[in-house]
Structure formats: C-alpha cells, structure tokens
Design a protein around this nucleic acid. Sequence first.
RNA 1: GCCGGGGUAGGGUAGUGGCUAUCCUGGGGGACUGUGGAUCCCCUGACCCGGGUUCAAUUCCCGGUCCCGGCCCCA
Length: 413
Amino acid sequence: MMFKKPKGTRDFTPIEMKKRRIIENKLRTVFDSYNFKEINTPTFESFELLSKKTGEDIRKQLFVFKDHGNREMGLRPELTSSVVRFYINELKNLPKPLKLYYFANCFRYENPQAGRYREFWQMGCELIGSKYPIADAEIINLAMDGLNKINMDYEINIGHLGVLKGIFKEFELSEDEELKIRRLIDKEDYEGLENYLSELKSSDELKDIIFKILNSKGDKSVIPDLKEVLKDYPTSIEALNNLEEILEFVKHDNIVINFGIARGLDYYTGMVFEIYGKREGARQVCGGGRYDNLIELFGEQPTPAVGFAYGFDRVMLNIDDFEVEDESILIIPIKKDKKLLKECLNIADKLRKSGKSVEVDLMNRKLNKALNYANTVGINKVIIVGEKELSEGKVSLKNMKTGEQELVGLEDL
RNA sequence: GCCGGGGUAGGGUAGUGGCUAUCCUGGGGGACUGUGGAUCCCCUGACCCGGGUUCAAUUCCCGGUCCCGGCCCCA
C-alpha cells in the first residue's frame, strides 16, 4: 500500500458520517434552542495566539509550522483562543450577552489512546459579557440538555476554583506551590498531595482545610456544611455563595458538587464543571467553566465569559450504537437504449427536486443485477422504466421491502 | 517522551524457513436477451517498511512505522 493515513487520524465511512451527523444535528438544535449563534474560525492561527494563555511549553503538543513568509503558525488545539480573538477583533461591540457556538476539528500532537486522536472534533460554546450566576447556570443547563437530547447517560461534577483560591490566598502560597497543588488535585493523587502539603509551612492547618474541601463531595447539601468549615476564609465563602446562586438556576438535580475539579490549566476563574460518560478510558466528554481573565489577558478590557466544549468523538463513544437507514430510490431502465436512459434521468430530476434521494443505474446493469444491487445496498424503492409502460405514460414502482409492485403514472411519482 | 500487545487481499481469517500462500466475505463480469436476496464459473486482490541471520525469510532476530490499550500530559 502506497499511502497510509497519518497517525492519530481517522477516515469516516458513510455509515459513520451519517451517525455523526445525526448526533451533531441533535446537539445543534439544542444550541439553537438557547439562541446561541454558530461561528467558525480558521483551522490555524499564529503560534503566538495559541500559546498565549499557556506559554511556550504548549509547543510540543501542537502541530506547528512556518508559512512561506516565515510566520509561525499552529493548528488549533481548541477553539476558545480563536473565539476570543474573533471577539476582540470584530465582535466586541455587539450587544451582550454574546452567545456563540462552534463545531470544528482540532489538532493536538499527542499519542493516541482510547478516545484520543490527533485530529478530533469539539462542539462548544462561549457566553461572553455576563458575570451573573444565571449565565453560569445557562451554560451548565445547555451542556446537560444536549446530552439529554441524545439520550447519553452521564455524571456531571461541578466545582468552583474560588474556594481553593481563597485558601491559597489566606496561606499566601506562591504561584508555583498553588499550581503544583492544583495539579495533584486534578490528578486525584491524594497521597502525593498529602506528602507535598506536609513539606509546606503551616502545613497541618492547610492540609486539614484542603482535605476537608476535597471531601465535601456530593449533592448541594455539602455547601452549607463547608461554609461553616471555611467561615474564616472570606474569598472562599464568596465562591460558595456564588456557586449556590448558580445552582439555584440549574434545572437538573443529578449533579455532584466536587471541588477536586481543577480543570487542567489556569485560565478558569470561577465555576468549573466536567461531564463523564460511562465508557472506561474515554470517560470525560465535556468540560467547561468561567474564565473572566482571558479576554483581558488577550489585551482587551476585562470581560466576563463562561463556556464549555463537548469532545464530540468521546460523545460518540459514549452513546449506544443505533441503526441508520435512509429512504432512497433506484431507477432502472429495462433496456440500455438512450431514450429510456434519458427518461430515467428525467424522472430522477423530478424526484430529486422534490427532495428524494435518487440513483439512476450507472453500471449498465441488467435488470436482475440492478435489483440485486438495490437489495444489497438497502434501497427502498425501485422504479423500473420500460418501453411498454412508458408508452402509456407509466412506470413500475417496486417496494423492495415488501416486494409489491404497481404501475404508476409519471405524473403521480 | 515512556511501556505492553498486535500488523497476511476492502472486511474477517488459516498457514509455512523453500513448491502457484488457505478459506469466508466483498467488488467486477458471465451463465440469465423484462423482475431481487439462490447456485455455479471467471476475474480482482494481501504477507507493514528497512536491515540482519540463511543457499533460501511472510515465517527467526533487530530497528522503524502504524493500530489497540496503558502511563505522562490533557489549554
């Protein structure tokens, strides 16, 4: 074989594409129903933009290249940076809230494993301009409604970075220390966390508080208890109040409060959430949260924003497989003379204009072979065009499922 | 970047240090000249790549690559 597809990429068969489109369209209707508006941005951006919120280290996880003008470019690893750039370039003067969504392929230079590819699809949204809890809630509700729409079983965990940040502030931890702690929390490496915390000054109290926060996991009722524990940490209390307000507007009840969600890197500022499916190895299907500092980081005046993205491929892995079938028609001339063939094309043209999915035999097949073909590819109806019937203005319409066949006037097709 | 398991026609497989590499399925054509799912026949089409060992490698060894999965990481 001469060519193979690049590592970590996939070809999608017609059946796979059909299924992906069905799911995509269902999710799309939910975004539309919240009156989010679809946008698109370039597949590649300047490396500088892509590395802005994470730093140079990101390079090894990006597809980076230089264009002919020696400008350094990268394939987008996600859409948030691009959307924010677009917002700052052109959309910042639109009325708020700005509600945007996208469905796009993204690229990360990583080793493939279950549910991880070098090219993958994200469907997500950004709600820009509202700092209010109801905006956070709308994002959570939208994320859950989408998955409900496609009947996916999931678990959602919601946290708030302000709680831990309030603690870090009181204990005056350095940025490095804070980052290291968040990494360990995100990984759920509690043993490593305990060891690390033991090394720090004021370790006992800090350790005690952090583990109390991490253990506050469950339904909404954990919040009042945690407030009591954290009553001396005003920033944390503020965060808990914020989270409580948000949850008042979240319409689904099956949520888990979990302050262990540290969401990878640092641009989230408030509420954060993750959604998990059931499949082992590719469980996380969605992540999101509030990022009120990012737009400012990109050089615009401070603007609150909140959003999420589905990992579309993981969504596909976490739903039950389903059958797809399409309504299609094959038109077969009984003989291969030009007049009959042209008549076939005329009929096809008419049916196509009325929205039907129509094939004309292109293989010069004899009738029995053509029927055989129709049968194996799952064509529902066959129109047989013969001279005798045609002279009376009729054709044979055959239902491939039932085998029934009837003469139909050309006008009645 | 690291680790484990794999790689034989489009899909699924058998097998071997040597002879025309097995079978099923799929695809094209025919038997069948105006009615499908059957049967028969013909055609199509593969040992991942490179190096080594050997008289001889698809087979054994090494390296690479890709796939599956696990770490690291995951904006």
